[in-house]
């Protein structure tokens, strides 16, 4: 796809097409790796694609370009998602995704910034990304740099106390160049989030912490775009999108299956999944 320093994709159908390709690449690399996190990678695809391709300024040829918008994948186990997005964006050749989780590959099981240019910060230990995103946003603001910072968290992840420390910080310092997302797919490793450790009412919690909250269907590309638009108009406080999503989205036999949190597809499942994604006319 190449340089995205100018001209962002606003056509919904084009974004949907990218999302399909990203889903297929996620499943492809997971199948070849034989392990990894399927469900939570698929649930955040539409949001991540919308952020990268309809919003962000970046330049794969110069990953540390100062004017770039920043993206933090706080839910680091969705590494296949960010790799598929980066391949689509032109950070590396698509066939590099075959090295996922292989010894010495820059495509580590969880994102490593030191090994893969374009990854802003290493993640994988949950709850840390929002703090780092805040720091970036504060640094950009100090320099008068208009770049924005995006951060995707999981819903199980917000059980981490640090998330709420960071939530306070963003509101206290009136960080309005940040847009966070909770990928609210409702499932975590041990079961339904509300059964393991309830986080609702999520909307009220973030609002009480001083955030501008948008509660949307995280698979409806138009709603995502509208929320990202809205976030850019909010001044004096941080914005968060609660994206109501489906774990394993796009593949019927992975959807809402807690057992596919940390399990890769088999070859046979992969073939069936690709067929489903390509046949799907609705998403």
């Amino acid at each position: 796809m190449g340089v995205m320093t100018e001209g962002k994709i606003t056509d919904i159908n084009e974004l949907k097409k990218i999302a399909k390709n990203v889903r297929i690449n996620i499943l492809h690399m997971l199948t070849l790796a034989g392990s990894g996190h399927t469900g939570g990678s698929l649930s955040a695809v539409d949001v991540a694609v919308a952020i990268y391709f309809s919003r962000m300024k970046f330049n794969p040829a110069d990953p540390s370009w100062e004017e770039r918008d920043r993206f933090v994948l706080s839910k680091g186990h969705a590494a296949p998602l960010i790799y598929a997005v980066m391949a689509e964006a032109g950070y590396f050749r698509e066939d590099a995704i075959k090295t996922l989780r292989k010894t010495g590959s820059p495509l580590q099981g969880h994102p490593c910034s030191a090994m893969l240019p374009g990854i802003e910060i290493s993640t994988g230990s949950l709850g840390q990304g929002l703090s780092v995103a805040n720091g970036m946003a504060l640094g950009l603001r100090l320099d008068g740099n208009p770049a924005r910072v995006y951060c995707i968290m999981g819903d199980g992840e917000v059980q981490e106390g640090q998330v709420w420390e960071a939530a306070m910080t963003a509101a206290h310092y009136k960080i309005d160049n940040i847009c966070a997302v909770v990928d609210n797919n409702g499932l975590q490793i041990d079961g339904p989030v509300e059964k393991v450790m309830g986080i609702e009412p999520l909307r009220d919690k973030w609002a009480a912490f001083g955030w501008h909250v948008m509660d949307i269907d995280g698979h409806n590309m138009q709603e995502i775009i509208d929320a990202l638009d809205e976030a850019e108009t909010v001044k004096g406080r941080p914005s968060i999108i609660i994206a109501r999503t489906t774990k394993g989205k796009g593949v019927s036999f992975f959807e809402n299956k807690v057992e596919y949190h940390g399990v890769a597809p088999t070859r046979e499942e992969f073939d069936r999944a690709v067929k489903e994604i390509l046949d799907d006319r609705t998403s």
Partner: peptide, 8 residues
């Protein structure tokens, strides 16, 4: 975490 972000 915020310090790391500022460094970045």
């Amino acid at each position: 975490g915020t310090a790391a972000g500022l460094a970045l």
